[in-house]
Design a protein around this nucleic acid. Structure first.
Length: 479
DNA sequence: CCCCCCCC
């Protein structure tokens, strides 16, 4: 970046005749203002010294400039409106805010300052993700996209329908993680990814969170932002990695080899103080929360159904017969398959009390020491000979407390069960990474490439028209 | 913010 221009710090309210060369370091999704219908979009601009300023676009300028200010690209900017940021709206990048409007002069500079962009990120290693599980803390990740699942519609606990779509990312050690994209990220980023998956896209995301859903996965937040690049030019390291390992990656993509090779690890607490005593959550009325409990599980109601027929795409209940292909009313998948899923209603006890809790899927199968298909075919009321009905030793449970919209009391759901003997113990962190008994990344039925993306083919047709209007940021090859 | 049951 050159010297003959001003830096961000040189520009104050009232400064005239300035030009600053900046990289678009962040570009957030447009939002609607809290107390008015005004739309706004925030960007973070960075100069050659790494200083940043928040720039904001309003109303019609958002769409007008969406192809002018691309994430990671370099621009000469002059005549933005420079003012002190209203404390109420202050973003973290600084006290000064630039407003970009029709009078702002913006000139694209063909420079690759992606290293500067990358320097603004602090990537979390995949193996450190468990430390952030359900914490809602911001994390950033970088990885190659090796798979994208069909879009799903889900119902939140407040009855709202949302669209989500899962990606599989692989890092340089060939570890994989699921990234769930929500709502607008499905319309924008996922649509682009579906159309370009052959290019081995690198994804860089920030302001993401780690959840315990599906074992352990990354999820978007409202202010997440992505940089998706199909040519590896972003990160030199990844470029050479991608080329060196293209055969392995091709194999992961085509054979879905990753599905069984990289189980998630959990950070299981080892200190007594990290476990919640059951007496402290009995009758709890809080919103959703997560707890570690050390205790024993047992089935108190023998005469229950230990499985349900589910959609293989979204796990929601199905009225179809095993193996049937059907349109799922919940996730809207047109070719969902009905498969049994284990569930068990049990009692969790520790020395301080007990709660009733449900386990579904893998934790249920682990506890019962059975599997969904066997449970489905079982006709008699089970006995200790046919399945495990109680635990001899304490095990460790990761429990989610759920309050439904119209219900006052909490339900508890067991997400993971860990046998203490699995824990190696890590005295430095007080957390032990173990392979958990949670949900693995699901194995997709063998399918053609085409049908994998079937739910997006309609979109693909209209997308050409829309491409110029797209709000996603894409780095194209050496334009 | 997403899996069963329940709730009407």
């Amino acid at each position: 970046m050159g010297d003959k221009f001003q830096l961000i710090h040189d520009v104050s309210p009232g400064t005239t005749g300035w030009t600053v060369k900046v990289v678009v370091a962040e570009k957030f999704s447009p939002k609607v203002a809290q107390r008015s219908p005004t739309k706004y979009q925030n960007l973070t601009l960075m100069d050659s010294e790494g200083s940043t300023v928040q720039a904001t676009l309003y109303g019609q300028n958002i769409t007008a400039f969406q192809d002018e200010l691309l994430l990671g690209k370099t621009y000469l900017i002059s005549n933005a409106l420079v003012k002190e940021t209203n404390a109420e709206y202050k973003a973290k990048s600084g006290e000064i805010q630039w407003t970009i409007s029709g009078r702002t002069r913006i000139r694209r500079v063909e420079e690759n300052n992606s290293n500067l962009l990358i320097s603004t990120y602090s990537f979390t290693d995949f193996e450190d993700l468990p430390k952030y599980m359900d914490s809602n803390l911001d994390i950033s990740v970088i990885g190659m996209i090796i798979d994208i699942k069909p879009r799903r519609i889900i119902q939140t606990r407040f009855g709202k329908e949302c669209q989500v779509q899962d990606l599989v990312l692989v890092n340089k050690r060939f570890d994989t993680v699921l990234l769930t994209m929500w709502e607008t990220f499905v319309d924008n980023e996922c649509k682009y990814i579906c159309q370009n998956l052959r290019k081995k896209l690198i994804l860089i995301g920030k302001h993401l969170k780690v959840t315990s859903f599906n074992g352990l996965s990354i999820s978007t937040k409202a202010d997440s932002s992505f940089f998706i690049d199909g040519e590896f030019e972003l990160v030199e390291e990844f470029k050479s990695w991608g080329h060196t390992n293209s055969e392995i990656i091709d194999n992961m993509i085509s054979e879905k080899h990753y599905l069984t090779s990289t189980p998630s690890k959990l950070s299981v607490p080892t200190a007594e103080k990290d476990f919640t005593e059951i007496k402290n959550i009995q009758g709890l009325k809080t919103a959703k929360q997560f707890f570690w409990i050390k205790g024993k599980a047992s089935v108190k109601v023998l005469n229950q159904t230990y499985w349900y027929m589910s959609c293989n795409n979204c796990n929601k209940i199905s009225s179809e017969n095993y193996g049937d292909i059907y349109p799922c009313v919940f996730c809207k998948c047109t070719d969902a398959k009905a498969i049994p899923r284990a569930k068990v209603y049990m009692q969790l006890t520790d020395p301080t009390g007990y709660i009733n809790a449900t386990a579904i899927g893998n934790p249920a199968e682990y506890f019962l020491q059975s599997n969904a298909e066997i449970l489905m075919n079982q006709t008699l009321i089970p006995t200790a000979a046919s399945m495990r009905l109680s635990m001899d030793e304490d095990e460790i449970f990761y429990v989610k407390a759920i309050t439904k919209e119209l219900s006052t009391d909490c339900k508890f759901e067991i997400l993971f069960i860990v046998n203490p003997s699995q824990i190696a113990g890590d005295k430095n962190t007080g957390k032990a990474p173990v392979e958990h008994i949670g949900e693995p990344i699901k194995f997709l039925e063998p399918t053609t490439k085409r049908s994998l993306f079937h739910s997006d083919t309609d979109d693909a047709q209209s997308s050409k028209k829309k491409r110029d209007k797209s709000t996603i940021e894409i780095t194209k090859k050496n334009q």
